[in-house]
Amino acid sequence: MSALLEVDDLRVNFPTRTGLVQAVRGVSFSLGRERLGIVGESGSGKSQTGRAIMGLTPPQAEVTAKKLAFDGIDLLAAPARQRRALRGKRIAMILQDPKYSLDPVMSIGRQIVETLRTHEKVGKAEARDRALAMLEAVQIRDPARVFDLHPHEVSGGMGQRAMIAMMLIAGPEMMIADEPTSALDVTVQLDVLGILDKLVSERGMGLIFISHDLRLVSSFCDRVIVMYAGKVVEQLKASELRDAQHPYTRGLLNCMPRIGFERHPLPVLDRKPEWAA
């Protein structure tokens, strides 16, 4: 199986007034039609990795890589037009909080239709039908009603489903989900994850699932990358997580609360500068 996405030595730097911030420092991995989890603590560079792949890093950021290729297309060499055509059409991304990542003054339906009509020549009526079908696919019960609602009129869970619908409607082959459920209530989290899981496997998409919840990632993904301070410290199969070698990964594992075990004092995550070196 040839890889859908190949990343070799990806770096993202931010020149700032106080010096260079190295957000991502040499990340390498490849992705097939599988689910890859990226975990790490806050600020470890997960989102910047995802955004660099999408081409959505802020303009002042410097992105370099030995190789950054999607389906054989060299992303860093591709002209802006081509990259834009890829976004939404072949590579999609779900953001963390639907409250902020949906346009507040545009109805949900129009936002979904907008993605479709950007990438395909379809008439108004057909676009509407397909958007409704997509809303149904993300298990929204009354699509025709939700179609005309504005983002503030729906709950977080529904907003995130609308977001998934908006990003999947053009049929992308790869999806980056950046903490898609972190902003949701626990009860709703599982619903949304279930929907995402189903759609991804039905459509045979590649998925990069970013999270800081190691347990979630290991139950949801095939493979896991552990990041620390902009670097990959360990890469392993989700099923082999228990045998993780790296002390940082072990630390993350130990920090996870488990029902039935009372632990005092709470463990503190170890951080050693040499891991980042």
Binding site: R87, G88, L95, S101, L102, E114, T118
Partner: peptide, 22 residues
């Protein structure tokens, strides 16, 4: 600087549309 602009870019919209329509 809002997140929905990032989302609009992720959808593949043109800058023109992002600026004027969103």
């Amino acid at each position: 600087s809002q997140e929905y602009i990032v989302a609009a870019r992720a959808k593949g919209l043109s800058e023109r549309r992002i600026i004027w329509a969103h």
